[in-house]
Computed example of a mutant assay.
Amino acid sequence: MRFAPAAAALSLIVAITASVGQGAERDADPRAAMLVTEGRAALEADQPQRAIDAFEAALAIDPGYTAIFLDLAQASRAEGMQGKAIHYYREALVRDPGNLAAISGEGAALVEKGALEKARANLSKLTSMCGAGCAETRQLAAAIEAGPRQPVLTAEALLPEAQVTQAN
């Protein structure tokens, strides 16, 4: 009974040390890192499909490297596929729930889709995690302020003009 507080404290220290060691981001496989570099160069050259191909190949080589999901999401957004980008951001968040870049990127993709309320929820989460002054919070706030890139179309906006003709 008199060793219980010491044992509890020791087990707590061991648990914290183990979780910190496993939570650290590891380096990518060298082959995957080379493909990621190639994909980032393609993205900078405004070739998002080539970048997606490189990032997907890197993901096949090293599926445990979370940064690839962020790159895939960015390339998908550049290609205009915000839904796919949101999927990749959420996959990164499953692996690392505190990833500020993934939360901010998901919020920006939500803004681009026109889901401003969900994007504001991400902004609130970022503000609580790192404050109003961090870069990710400022980027998402600016994206929300700018609004969606393109107006959201409704089904009524796409209806053709009705023309009535008389059949003989």
Rank of each mutant, 00 (worst) to 15 (best):
I16V: 15
E136Y: 06
S11M: 15
N168D: 15
A142W: 15
K113P: 08
V14Y: 06
L72H: 11
E79A: 13
A32G: 03
A42V: 07
T66D: 12
F3D: 09
I144D: 13
A41L: 09
D62L: 02
A60L: 08
G114L: 04
R2L: 08
A28D: 04
R90I: 05
N122E: 01
A18N: 05
M1G: 07
L126P: 09
R90K: 15
A8P: 11
D53S: 09
A32Q: 03
C130G: 12
A146N: 03
H87K: 06
T66F: 05
A51E: 00
D96S: 10
A102I: 06
E44K: 10
F69D: 15
P48D: 02
P63H: 04
V36E: 05
D29T: 01
F3Q: 14
A33S: 14
Y65S: 06
A73D: 01
L100V: 05
I13Y: 15
A78Y: 06
V164M: 14
S128F: 07
N168Q: 12
Q74Y: 11
R2E: 09
E161H: 13
A24P: 12
A108Q: 09
V20P: 02
L110Q: 04
S104H: 01
P63N: 09
G133V: 11
P48C: 02
L116W: 14
V94L: 03
L12Q: 03
L123C: 00
A4S: 05
V164S: 15
A155F: 15
R26S: 07
M129Q: 15
P151H: 10
S124K: 11
P148C: 01
Q74H: 10
L158W: 06
A75D: 02
A15V: 10
L43H: 00
E117D: 08
R120T: 01
F69L: 11
A78V: 03
D29S: 03
G147M: 04
Q22V: 04
D96I: 12
L110S: 01
A157W: 11
I16Q: 07
L12H: 05
V36N: 01
I16T: 06
D27S: 06
L116K: 07
Y65F: 07
P151L: 13
R2W: 08
P148W: 00
P48E: 03
R77S: 10
A42E: 14
P160Y: 09
K118T: 13
A41I: 14
Q82S: 15
L59G: 13
L35H: 09
L110A: 01
V111K: 04
I61V: 02
A28V: 02
M34I: 13
L10Y: 09
A132I: 05
R50D: 06
C130D: 02
S76K: 14
G133Y: 13
P63E: 03
